[in-house]
Design a protein around this nucleic acid. Structure first.
Lengths: 181, 181
DNA sequence: GTCTATACAACGATAGAC
DNA sequence: GTCTATCGTTGTATAGAC
């Protein structure tokens, strides 16, 4: 009804279309039509198409930064790594963070020059770095990095299987925990 | 010099630009400029922008289909799975297959409706299915699927490290082999 | 096999009325 | 806060000369 509501509806519809059809293939005209408003109405809430993306990603970035900060205070023990993964997985499945990550993953080149996208990439890399010592063997580094992947991959690897979201989630977490030792 | 050479140069330049800037963000005008020819020259070799993609992906698809066929003749043993992964990794690092996969991964939504892209997704899923029994536990399925991921992920996870391509490749293969048992 | 020239649609974005 | 109308640009693609 008020300004905030329309803004949020734009974010919601845009995110879904960016995931389904791709960022560049989704025009502002289509988003506007889906919402039953005009392009110009969108421009009242967001200066540019890019700013819609910014609004979506920045929320996710804030959460990841919190997690990164917590991670820096932790010792490099197996149990701390497992707790790190648990927190990552838990938080991924709240709000629209999972959708935001799907959007991010599936439109990597399209977002290549986007500042928020750049920050997201840096953050993900720094999270991955926290799972290993800087001088650890490559194999160990890679194996532990794969933990983060497992938490995400469980959603599209087991896509066609007859399982609930909870089972999918549990499998991803279990494999991830195993990978970080 | 002859028709085939120009054709191949178009593929090469287009692939690099599709990876760097994204498929949709790369216009035929830019590809033509990079090659020092005109847009119309491109249209002589490829009917549409889509057909450039088709030509790139179909080569990769043919190889994966060979591997899938070989896989179907194999028993479901750990050693057969390891050999399967070895063949996958070996073949990925020949020709421009690795670049083609990077292009494919990074432009998933942009290629969403593309027939060759659809076939590629199906193929990758069927390769993944070969690593597990249909009735295996979710965790096992996911863990083995992650082997394919490891072979790819080693290229961008260990990106900033001071390592050679061979070391990267070896780490990816080692982790993948461990994951399939 | 490559060119110039151009058609035509759709894009992101803006101006100004209501 | 949303509208109509329109700007300038860029996109894919084509026609026809050389």
């Amino acid at each position: 009804m008020d300004r905030t509501d329309t803004r949020s509806r734009i974010q919601e519809v845009a995110l879904r279309m960016f995931i389904d059809k791709g960022y560049e293939a989704t025009s502002l005209r289509e988003i506007a039509e889906e919402l039953g408003v005009t392009k110009a109405a969108l421009y009242y809430h967001f200066d540019t198409k890019e700013k819609i993306v910014t609004s979506l990603i920045d929320d996710r970035i804030a959460r990841l930064e919190e997690l990164a900060e917590w991670g820096r205070t932790q010792p490099r023990t197996p149990e701390a790594r497992r707790e790190f993964i648990r927190r990552y997985a838990d938080e991924l499945h709240q709000g629209r963070h999972h959708d935001t990550m799907r959007f991010f993953e599936r439109n990597q080149t399209a977002l290549h020059d986007h500042p928020s996208s750049l920050r997201m990439r840096e953050l993900m890399m720094s999270l991955i770095d926290m799972l290993s010592e800087a001088d650890a063997p490559l194999e160990e580094k890679l194996k532990r990095s794969m933990a983060i992947f497992a938490v995400h991959a469980t959603w599209f690897i087991l896509r066609d299987q007859d399982v609930t979201d909870e089972q999918r989630q549990a499998a991803g977490l279990a494999v991830a925990l195993e990978l970080v030792g």
